[in-house]
Amino acid sequence: MSSSYNNSYRSKSLFTNQNIVLLSIGWAVLALLYYLLFGAKVPGADGVESRAEWYVIGTNIFEALAYLGAGILCLRNWRSPQIVSSRNIWLAIGVGMLSYFLGGIFFGYTEIILKQEPDISIGDVFFVLTYLSVGAGMILAVTSRRINLEKWQWLIVLAIGLFGSLLAWWISMQQGTSKEMLVVIVNWFYVISDVVLLILATTMLLAFWGGRVAQSWRMIAAAAFSLYIADMWFKYAQGPNYQSGDILEVFWVFSGVLFGIGAVLEHDASLSRTRRERGRKRV
């Protein structure tokens, strides 16, 4: 009985919020080193330069585990009655993270196992669900707090939104247009969604500035920025010679890690607040 209790206690103490944050940061650093050290293209038997298949598999693993971990941590917040923010916010973001995890699995399977690069695949169903869910969660987070930005702060939101829109539009025009209507609709959905998340992230960053509880939302905002960078690079790099594993794609891993860290910081701040309230009641 005592041995079972000790093992359970050690297991719980190992996965403290602080340790989870350190593990997440370590995962991001390992991913960056992996991309930097092994991402170079090497000439193949036919003389065409390409990245090793084991490297591409590794990038998929780094990305998948980042989003799987973020989804689990967000759903932990959803299940916690002590969480400061609305639990629906974390449910939406958690569903989005798990959807991105599944989308990445299908995308990797299509690219690595089937050796195909279709314009639309079943993975896109989960990616679309990701944007809808994460967007809904971020909108709920912003609207749940009274937005009282200064004029110069609204100008920053406007400037970043305008820049992000122009960049996304320019990259989309560079790639040309597909003849398939479904492909066009999905591609523009991604572009618009990226810009919307960028605007929400900027608003969130300015609205939640300051305070311990706000730390979590700064991480969520940074995660949305990272997602935008990776998505824009992916869209820009797409073409007949595109191969997965470019260095800027590490921002997909960063995005998943930052969403997870944001969930952990929110959980930790909620527990601290609950302890303080109980201490006051006892006094």
Rank of each mutant, 00 (worst) to 15 (best):
Ile89Val: 15
Ala269Thr: 07
Pro81Glu: 04
Leu98Thr: 00
Leu227Gln: 12
Asn17Ile: 03
Trp54Ser: 06
Gln238His: 13
Gly176Ala: 11
Tyr34Asp: 00
Met232Tyr: 05
Lys179Asn: 08
Val213Thr: 05
Phe189Leu: 09
Val253Asn: 05
Tyr109Gly: 05
Leu197Lys: 08
Leu205Asn: 13
Leu197Cys: 10
Trp233His: 05
Gly103Thr: 03
Phe189Lys: 09
Gln153Met: 13
Gly58His: 11
Ala159Arg: 12
Ser86Tyr: 03
Tyr236Arg: 11
Gly71Asn: 04
Gly94His: 01
Gln174Tyr: 09
Ser272Trp: 06
Arg280Val: 15
Lys235Glu: 11
Gln238Ile: 07
Tyr35Phe: 07
Ile199Arg: 05
Val21Glu: 06
Pro81Leu: 05
Leu248Val: 05
Leu30Ser: 10
Glu63Trp: 07
Pro43Met: 09
Pro81Ile: 00
Val253Ile: 14
Ala52Glu: 13
Phe225Val: 05
Gln18Val: 08
Gln238Glu: 09
Ala221Gln: 08
Ala52Val: 06
Phe15Ala: 05
Leu149Cys: 03
Val128Cys: 06
Asn19Gly: 03
Gln175Arg: 14
Trp252Cys: 05
Ile156His: 05
Ser172Gln: 14
Ser244His: 13
Ser8Met: 13
Trp188Thr: 00
Met232Thr: 07
Trp188Met: 10
Met97Arg: 02
Glu63Ala: 08
Leu98Phe: 08
Gly239Ile: 11
Val125Asp: 01
Asn60Lys: 09
Val195Arg: 09
Trp154Val: 02
Glu277Cys: 14
Glu277His: 14
Gly104Asn: 12
Glu49Arg: 14
Ile185Trp: 14
Gly262Leu: 13
Leu140Phe: 12
Leu129Thr: 01
Leu200Phe: 09
Arg278Met: 10
Gly94Glu: 00
Ile220Ser: 11
Tyr55Trp: 02
Leu73Lys: 13
Asp46Lys: 01
Thr202Ala: 05
Ala269Cys: 06
Val42His: 03
Gly108Ser: 11
Leu73Tyr: 00
Ile25His: 12
Ile105Pro: 03
Tyr228Cys: 07
Tyr190Gly: 03
Ala28Tyr: 12
